[in-house]
């Protein structure tokens, strides 16, 4: 064992904006790598999550695969963090929640002007969409929440350094925002 904290990250129903903001901590990533190592993450391309100290979830759940991955993360991570508006409250994808799912699919794939009327995709490889998009705390227990769309790099840095040091993360004015 390296003695480093093992960290996994993933994007569910998100846009990878939170991961981009995470990379925006720039050279501080090197400082972070002195104390953490990455497990499953877009950074490593490891496909299955292993035993981890910290799991960071971007995005809410909008399909069956999201639910599966989220449960795997919960099972394997001692501490689970919801990062960004979508993981925290559903965010942009949840803006479809007041609409009927079938109506949406019909319009997007079938009836919308300029489409080839190909029909709603039903390849068995495609994960089934959920009726509604949910924030992750409605599916698993979440230990910490880091709001923002995306959270600024400085907020992510503060949050992670607090967590790694064993402190309850605290974001001062200007770092805590919902937009």
């Amino acid at each position: 064992m390296s003695g480093k904290l093992r960290v996994a990250t993933t994007s569910l129903a998100g846009c990878f904006g939170c991961h981009m903001s995470f990379l925006d901590i720039d050279e501080r990533l090197l400082t972070l790598l002195e104390v953490v190592e990455f497990d499953r993450s877009p950074i490593t391309d490891i496909k299955e999550v292993g035993q981890c100290d910290l799991g960071i979830i971007e995005g809410g759940v909008c399909n069956a695969e999201n639910v599966h991955v989220l449960r795997e993360f919960r099972k394997h991570c001692k501490t689970l963090v919801a990062m960004g508006a979508c993981a925290v409250n559903g965010g942009l994808p949840a803006q479809r929640n007041h609409l009927d799912l079938r109506d949406i699919l019909e319009e997007v794939y079938h009836t919308e002007l300029g489409l080839a009327h190909g029909g709603i995709p039903n390849d068995p490889e495609l994960p089934l969409p959920l009726n509604k998009v949910h924030p992750i705390h409605e599916v698993v227990k979440v230990d910490y929440f880091l709001p923002g769309c995306p959270p600024p790099a400085d907020a992510i840095w503060k949050f992670l350094t607090d967590l790694v040091a064993g402190r309850t993360p605290h974001l001062a004015h200007g770092l805590l925002h919902y937009d």
């Binding site: 925290v88 409250n89 559903g90 949840a94 924030p135 979440v142 929440f145 974001l171």
Partner: peptide, 10 residues
């Protein structure tokens, strides 16, 4: 940091 409860999405 979180709305905590289940969302209504009215």
């Amino acid at each position: 940091m979180t709305p905590h409860f289940d969302m209504f999405y009215p």
